[in-house]
């Protein structure tokens, strides 16, 4: 199940063209869903507007469970974009994978640790940025020496651990899901008997992957808000 990837060097940067393609596709899909759903807004919502308003309320619930709305309201757009982008990205790899010349082209962009860690680093960097901006450098710095001064090294390690776990959790779940999907597809190709027998676990695993993809999108957004709340709120 090892697939290669087509890379291209441009301006001294290495691009994995599959990732570039899938990031673009995910972004466009999310953009289309969100914009089409909000084209005809009305006071009495129906159809897609209802769905999107449910998503908004869901993310509002996530934010409200970690911090008060006065501080957390500004993160609503971030949370909404994160949860929808990650969910769509997770779903993209489920129906099929496209392999051309042993190079994997169509997959979930979140099945690549580069992508998930980029998102994780972005979230943690944002949490530090908002920590400094909303509490001032002094109070922000003092947070690293609470509750005991000797815990400072642990606090530093925590920041890196947070970043790594946030990114790798998402990557691991989606990558493992796709890997097992690939293996099951391989099983169905081994013969008629194996094909008939293998289709059932394939269906089950696809259903489970939808669940996992949704849960991971929720967890990523939830943890984002938790980290932001840690840096931003005053009572910690």
């Amino acid at each position: 199940m090892e697939h290669g990837a087509v890379t291209a060097d441009f301006l001294g940067l290495t691009f994995n063209l599959s990732n570039v393609l899938m990031i673009t596709v995910s972004s466009v899909i999310v953009f289309l869903i969100a914009v089409l759903a909000t084209r005809t807004l009305s006071m009495r919502p129906g159809g897609m507007q209802n769905f999107l308003e449910w998503v908004v309320d869901f993310v509002k619930g996530i934010i409200n469970s970690t911090m008060d709305w006065h501080t957390g309201g500004r993160f609503l757009a971030l949370g909404l974009t994160l949860i929808m982008y990650i969910f769509v990205a997770n779903m993209l790899g489920l129906p099929f994978a496209v392999v051309v010349d042993h190079n994997l082209w169509w997959k979930s962009p979140t099945a690549d640790p580069t992508i998930t860690l980029t998102l994780a680093v972005m979230v943690v960097a944002l949490s530090h940025y908002y920590g400094v901006r909303m509490k001032g450098v002094k109070e922000y710095g003092a947070e690293f020496f609470k509750p005991m001064k000797f815990l400072f090294p642990l606090k530093i390690i925590e920041e890196f651990a947070n970043t790594l776990t946030l990114g790798l959790r998402l990557y691991g779940n989606i990558f493992a899901g796709e890997m097992l999907l690939g293996l099951l597809v391989g099983l169905t190709k081994m013969g008629i008997f194996a094909g008939v027998l293998g289709i059932f676990p394939l269906i089950v695993w696809q259903g489970f992957s939808v669940f996992v993809g949704a849960i991971q999108a929720f967890i990523f957004t939830m943890l984002t808000m938790v980290y932001l709340a840690h840096k931003v709120s005053h009572d910690h």
Binding site: T7, T14, F15, T118
Partner: peptide, 13 residues
């Protein structure tokens, strides 16, 4: 998925 660190992917994402 490929050799080396995909710095371009990071920036693109």
């Amino acid at each position: 998925a490929g050799g080396g660190l995909n710095t371009g992917d990071i920036l693109y994402q």
